[in-house]
Amino acid sequence: MSRPVVTWPPPGATAQEVVADLSVLEAAMAGTGPAVAVPGALDRGDVGVTRVPDETAVVVATSGTTGRPKPALLPARALELAVGGVQDVLGGPGQSMLAVPPTHITGITVILRNLWAGFAPTAVTPGHFGPEAFVDLTRRWDPRAPRHYVTLVPTQLRRVLACPEAVAAAREYDTILVGAAPLPAADRDRALRRGLAIVDGYGCSETAGGCLYDGRPLPHVLTHLGEGGRIHLGGTQVALGYLDRPDAAGAFTTDADEARWYRTYDHGHRDATGRLVVDGRLDDLINSGGLKVAPTAVEDAIGLARCPGIAEAMVVGVPDPEWGEAVAVVAVPRQGATPGLDGIRACLADHLPSHALPRVLHLVASLPVRGPGKPDRVRARALAGAALSAR
């Protein structure tokens, strides 16, 4: 059995325009209308003629770092589990403010949480997300809701933390869910010190969004660490697979108990309490002289050590004739500051082993991001590499 699929949200629509009419998404979830595919999930020639498995409610494009996005087939049941599970984590139904793009899985689940709870989603005003937009969004919430939530990406959280008025607005939320990209430990600590209720979410398009919160899986989610710490996620919340991508079919398997499993491209470890800590993407690991360096470990150290002059930083590997790869920092300097490589290395000397200390520093006006706010390490690597070549 199969069903037709239509493009939704309308290409080019603002978040406010999207939430004004959710009937197409509601019909897709209820099975009374076509499945929906976010813009870009289908090749242009396939729109209007493609059919998907009958279970499918939403087709969402992965925000992959290389190649064309892969369309993940998400059943209504997977999305319902994701939405219901996070409601339990957050403390119960409430209004969830939409501050992330509705064309990505994070935004879709925010919309569905509102439908689940019986509240109209309120979206951030179009344009650049900054403290003013966040304060405005907070002022427009529904006072009848018993709880109020907002989902932010780490970049948005940093912008909120930089403005006292936005921090005051953030304190009004029962919970701020941070997802779509790793939350640096320094940013989490800053948020907690300012009285914000933070929950760190982890998931992907292939798992209908968040499935682990503060390192703990939802009750119906299975986890396994494979070779090299590769994270495997299983259960009913996992996608059926990819649409028309036989080359990527190996990412999904079914075990003897008929549970679906997805092999992620992330690696992690369990801490002393059993929580799953996501260390980053396997293809982001830096191999310097045969020793592996996780970029997120260096980024966390930069934040926790409060390296002077650094406002934001992204760490990548760049080619090095002696070590194979060298640790490079692409950083946004604080206003009026000109941080140097020697100063950063000295600041980090007590926090990192010698092979993980940066050997390259490249200053930029803003860090490159992709999709809903994930670090664009491919672009950052190109920027650092070009700067290195220009020496």
Rank of each mutant, 00 (worst) to 15 (best):
R51F: 11
T50M: 09
P53H: 00
T65E: 13
L42T: 15
R51D: 09
K70N: 03
T32A: 06
V36N: 04
P71S: 03
A41N: 10
G33M: 13
V58G: 10
A57G: 10
G48D: 08
P53I: 08
A30F: 07
V49T: 15
A57M: 03
A35I: 06
E55L: 14
V58C: 07
A37V: 11
G64W: 10
M29H: 03
V49I: 11
V36W: 03
T65A: 14
R44S: 13
A61E: 01
P34H: 10
T65N: 13
R68D: 13
R51K: 05
G40I: 03
A35N: 07
R68A: 14
V58I: 12
L73S: 03
G45E: 13
P69A: 09
D46H: 11
T62H: 03
R51T: 15
A41S: 09
R44Q: 15
G33Y: 12
R68S: 12
G33Q: 09
E55T: 05
T32G: 08
L73H: 08
V47I: 15
M29Y: 04
E55R: 11
P34Y: 10
L73R: 02
T65V: 09
V59W: 00
A37G: 11
V52F: 05
G64E: 09
K70Y: 07
D54S: 13
V59L: 15
P39T: 08
P39N: 12
G64I: 13
G45H: 12
V60M: 02
P34S: 13
E55V: 02
